[in-house]
């Protein structure tokens, strides 16, 4: 792939646990991606607006507070409403298996849970973004 992957990383909700997302941001940068990290306490409209402005290929969100079943759907709805549902949404956090399945059915491309490596997410993102680009070409 010649073009660099552009990815927006965001922390929605009130949760302040940012260890994971900062590790991911550093790993994605080291893997040659363009990373925009929004910082904490972003509402779904703020995240989707930033993703459109920054013209990203993917949005990655991290939620460790248990509010994932509220926040992921709200982001998906906002993406649809703004016509931004061509952007890939993925995420990670403390998310039980049942919820993970439900979220992936709903349209979240992938949910990573504790123990996943940065390599897993880099590989996933490269493949998924390439697949989307080929499909839309």
């Amino acid at each position: 792939m010649s073009e660099k992957i552009r990815v927006l990383l965001a922390k929605p909700g009130l949760d302040g646990h940012d260890r994971g997302i900062k590790v991911i941001a550093a790993a994605f940068r080291d893997a040659g991606m363009e990373v925009i990290y929004t910082g904490l306490r972003q509402t779904p409209p703020m995240i989707v607006e930033a993703a459109i402005q920054e013209d990203v290929d993917a949005i990655g969100v991290s939620i460790l507070s248990g509010a994932h079943m509220t926040l992921f759907p709200a982001i998906l709805d906002e993406m649809k409403a703004r016509g931004a549902d061509d952007i890939l949404l993925f995420g990670g956090g403390i998310i039980p298996d049942d919820d993970k399945e439900e979220l992936e059915k709903m349209g979240v491309a992938k949910v990573f849970t504790p123990g996943a490596t940065t390599e897993d997410s880099i590989r996933f993102l490269r493949e998924a973004v390439t697949a989307r680009k080929t499909r839309s070409d």
Binding site: G13, L14, D15, T43, S65, G66, A67, M69, T70, L71
Partner: peptide
């Protein structure tokens, strides 16, 4: 409104 989905969770 900012409490949505977070009440009683953590």
């Amino acid at each position: 409104v900012r409490s949505l989905g977070e009440v009683g969770k953590c």
